[in-house]
Write a protein that binds this DNA or RNA. Structure first.
Lengths: 221, 221
DNA sequence: CAATGTGAAGACCTTCACAGCC
DNA sequence: GGCTGTGAAGGTCTTCACATTG
């Protein structure tokens, strides 16, 4: 079923997880993997693995499982990871510099190719071998380095302005770490990672289960 | 409709976003807000705002909107943010120290109360006024500081071990930044933030729309 | 016989549209 | 009149269960 060329979003989000697990399996020397094993490694059900992979095509062998190397190749192709992507990080504070130094990006095909900041005091500072440039240079950087993805690591108040400048410079995919909603023209994709929000969601469940534990506990005397 | 005491997960995830927008509105001096305005601020539809808020109870006034201050209070209560939560960060590398220094946590009611690491060379180092402690001290720290939430910022290989130690120390809510699946006993909540995965998802959509732009572009001659 | 691939069923989430209320 | 609150409709995602196939 290689037909439908648009994957469900939920599937797109899981493909990177399968990919990581498969790369690990390949490194461990496994040649094939069943949907059960892969499900176990990723923390989902085997039916989900099979349905997700079926969107890519019928790459499994009944009675055997999936060829690890081949699946890795297919998922990479589907996600567009056969090429390396250059990314630019805007806002080189705490988080921005940590991201600039994060080696996990390079390992997965993303090269931090430019750093920009609005603070004149930071211009020229070297972080992880890269010089911080003024944000006004974005258009040139995007053109010269063929950047496709922008990462916003500025304070919330600056996020929308930076996003606008990124879009104007030709960037169509943005990962936003600032705790603010940025609006962009259609055709531009934004994904948001909000650290404090994640903690707040955890707090909700913690509170619920704490209340539950309280009830279950033997009454104090 | 204050009945149902369990919120849909999708709603729980949006409540922190509403909360942030409402706090901003309150700071700007707005006393009431309509579902339309709030939707605009958060980037969702007004129907969604109304449905989400209806799970909390009927706190709006027809023809008028919602009382900002009262809604802030109700959402805080629902999310369990009336208390301040102490969190411990495990793995004080690039990301871990950036998180330790991140002021956004404190602003939203989370106090970084302890830092632990497995590397002996890091023990005793002060980050943002906090001394890095050996991970073996987790149980004591959890008890003394009443920690409820653990943040894993270690390399992938260490993540499962750290999670196990957190669970053994009595932590029931974990935010995992390591690119690895950690399994925990039932009753423990884990949320995952995977930076490289987010970029991979962006790459998929970037690739798709780049292909589209290619088609639309006038043929070169 | 073991494991995939997939319709169908079920759960969950979002949008619609309008009755109800201020 | 304006805006909320909510059943009902419409989507999307997940699970089930089994026919299919190497």
């Amino acid at each position: 079923m290689t037909r439908d060329r648009r994957l469900p979003e939920a599937t797109v989000i899981r493909l990177p997880l399968y990919l990581r697990a498969l790369v690990d399996l390949a490194a461990a020397g496994d040649a094939t993997v069943s949907s059960d094993e892969l499900a176990e490694a990723v923390g989902v059900t085997s039916a989900m693995v099979r349905k997700d992979l079926s969107y890519l095509g019928s790459y499994g062998t009944r009675g055997v499982g999936y060829d690890v190397a081949y699946l890795v190749h297919q998922i990479r192709r589907e996600l567009g990871l056969t090429q390396h992507w250059g990314i630019v990080i805007a806002g080189i504070g705490n988080l921005g510099s940590a991201l600039a130094r994060y080696h996990g990006f390079l390992e997965r095909g993303f090269r931090v190719a430019a750093l920009v900041d609005a603070d004149p005091a930071k211009i020229g500072v070297i972080v992880e071998g890269l010089e911080i440039r003024p944000i006004a240079e974005l258009p040139g950087l995007v053109k010269d380095e063929l950047l496709a993805i922008g990462v916003i690591a500025t304070p919330a108040a600056a996020a929308q302005g930076v996003a606008d400048q990124m879009v104007a410079a030709g960037i169509c995919s943005i990962l936003n770490f600032a705790p603010a909603v940025v609006s962009v023209p259609s055709g531009v994709t934004v994904r948001k990672v909000d650290l404090a929000t994640e903690l707040q969601v955890l707090a909700y469940y913690e509170q619920r289960s704490a209340a539950l534990r309280e009830v279950k506990k033997p009454a104090p005397r």
